[in-house]
Design a protein around this nucleic acid. Structure first.
Lengths: 277, 277
DNA sequence: CTCAATTTGTTCGTATGTATG
DNA sequence: ACATACATACGAACAAATTGA
C-alpha cells in the first residue's frame, strides 16, 4: 500500500501558510467544507488513489492550518459521500471516487449540435405563449414581433442535467405548436426549408443558479452552472431562436479541436506573416 | 420611477415555497449569502435596473421564505458592493451594476489562440526542472521522456485572472530555457520550424479552486473556476505541451460561431441525408 | 399640518452551527 | 468531552424616516 508524502512537500505551499486565514475568509463556506472540497478534488484527480492511506490528522491540521476537529468534520463529509473510510489506529483510506459524469459534450458546430440535441430526452416542458421578448445584445440580430417562451428540463437516468429556456419567434412556433412544445425546437428549425440560418453563435459562461434553476436541477441557490446562450438569426437577421441553457457543472465538458479545419501545423511562415501585419 | 411587481408574480415560483428549506440546505453557503447572490443576479441581468426600487423587505421575506434580518444581511452585502442603497421610509434602490468583466475570450482555433496568448502579460513564473510527468488520458498522445513544469499567473490591471500550469517536454524546453520561462511557451512552440503540431485540443470544464489556485487568483478554497486543458502533440504523437489553465469565472467567456466554416444554412437536404444514414 | 400607512432600521431573546484549544 | 467564542437564523417588537391623503 502506498503511503503518500504530505501534499505540502510536493507543492510547497508552506510560504502561504500565513495567508491561510484570508483564504478561508474569501468564501463564506464553512472551513470544514472547504477542506472537504480540496480533499474531494485530490481523490477525483487521482492524487489520492482508491486504497491509499491519506495523510494523518496531524499532518492535515498543519497543512490546512486548522484545528483537528475541523479536519475531522471535513473527513466526515467525505465518509458520507463514500469517498473515505477512517479506522482508529490505522489511518484514513480512500474508498471510492466521486461520480464524474462529464458525459455531456457541447457541440462546436451546427451539424453536431443539431444531431446531439435531437437525441436529448426532454422530460418536462412549460410554455408561455404571451412571453416578454428576450434580452438581446448588439450584434445578436433584430427582435421578432412576438416570442413564445418554452422551458424544458433534460434528464439522464432521472437525474436532471440541464434547464433550457428558449424564446422562439412566434411565427416559427405557430407552424406546429404541438411539436415545438414536445420536441427540440432547434432540430425542427433546421428542417424548415424556407428558413435560412445566417448567424448561429453560442456563448458560454459560468453563472449561478437562480431559484428556478436551482429547484429544477436540484442545486443550492447560487451554486455554479455552465451557462450557454445560443442564438439563431434568419435571412432577415431576425433572432428567431434565443436559448439560455443552464448545465449542471458536474456533467459539463466542452472539447474543441483547435486544428479543426486546418490540418497539421508547422511553425514559422504564417506567424511571421502575422507579425509583420 | 419604476415600481416593480414582486418577482414571484412574474415567475410563479410560489409552488416551490414548500421546498425552500431543502434548496438552502443543498449548499453550505449561509442563507443570506445565497439570497444576495440571487439579488446580485437580478441586477446583473437587468431584471432590476439601476434606479429601480426593489421589493420591500416584507415581500422579500415572503418570497425567499426567510426572516427579515436574513434579507437585511443579504442587502447589506450588496450595499458593500455598491449595488444597492437603502433609505429608511422609502425603500431599497439599485445603485449600480456588478462589474461584468467577461473581457476574456477563449480561442477556438489555433491561430487565434496563439496570437491572443502572445499578448498576455505574464507576471510571475515558477519553474520545476525535475517535474513528474503530467496525467495523460487515452487519445491525448504519448508521454515524452521528461517534462519541465512551469507555472505562471496572468494579470489584468494587477488583478490575477488565470493560473497556467504547463508541462513542457524537456527537449523542447532546453532549446531556450530562458525564453520558455519568461514568455508564453505556446507562442514559442508555434515558431519552431521542425516541430509539426498534429493534434491540438482543448477541453473546458468547471472545477474548484485548490489551495494554490485559490491563493494565486485570490479566491476562496473550493470556489468555482473555468478549467481549460490544452494539449499539443507533435509529429510523433508525443504530447509536448500539456497545460491546465484555471480562469477566474468572472472574466471568462467563450464565444463560438457555429457556422464558422459553413456559411448560411437552409433546412431540409443535409438533414434528410443524415436521417437516412 | 397632522395622521396613517408604508418602509427601513434596531434590538432582544433564543437556538443552532462553526471553530478553537 | 468540555468550555469558549463567534456566526448564522428566527421571530417579534419597537423606532425612525418618508409619503400621500
Amino acid at each position: 500500500m502506498l503511503i503518500l508524502l504530505a501534499y505540502s512537500a510536493y507543492l510547497s505551499y508552506i510560504p502561504m501558510m500565513r495567508k491561510i486565514a484570508a483564504m478561508y475568509d474569501r468564501s463564506r463556506v464553512p472551513i470544514y467544507a472547504q477542506v472537504a472540497s480540496v480533499m474531494r478534488q485530490r481523490i477525483e484527480s487521482g492524487f489520492w488513489s482508491v486504497g491509499d492511506k491519506i495523510s494523518t490528522l496531524e499532518e492535515l491540521e498543519k497543512e490546512f492550518g486548522v484545528a483537528r476537529v475541523t479536519i475531522r468534520q471535513g473527513i466526515e463529509m467525505l465518509r458520507e459521500e463514500g469517498l473515505l473510510e477512517a479506522q482508529q489506529g490505522r489511518g484514513t483510506f480512500v474508498s471510492g471516487r466521486p461520480k464524474h459524469d462529464r458525459w455531456l459534450n457541447i457541440a462546436t458546430d451546427f451539424e453536431t449540435m443539431v444531431s446531439s440535441i435531437r437525441e436529448n430526452v426532454v422530460r418536462r416542458a412549460h410554455v408561455e405563449e404571451n412571453s416578454s421578448p428576450p434580452e438581446i445584445g448588439q450584434g445578436e440580430g433584430k427582435l421578432a414581433d412576438n416570442y413564445v417562451f418554452i422551458r424544458s428540463v433534460q434528464y439522464n437516468k432521472s437525474e436532471p442535467f440541464s434547464v433550457v429556456n428558449v424564446h422562439l419567434a412566434r411565427h416559427i412556433y405557430e407552424r406546429d405548436p404541438e411539436r415545438f412544445t414536445h420536441s427540440a425546437a432547434i432540430a425542427m428549425i433546421s428542417e424548415l426549408e424556407d428558413v435560412t440560418i445566417t448567424h448561429a453563435h453560442q456563448t458560454l459562461t459560468i453563472g449561478v443558479a437562480d431559484p428556478e434553476t436551482a429547484e429544477l436541477l436540484k442545486l443550492g441557490l447560487g451554486e455554479p452552472t455552465a451557462d450557454c446562450r445560443l442564438i439563431l438569426a434568419d435571412q432577415n437577421d431576425v433572432a428567431i431562436y434565443v436559448a439560455n441553457i443552464h448545465y449542471h457543472k458536474s456533467c459539463f465538458a466542452l472539447r474543441m479541436d483547435l486544428l479543426q479545419n486546418a490540418g497539421p501545423r508547422t511553425g514559422r511562415p504564417i506567424l511571421l506573416q502575422k507579425k509583420s501585419a
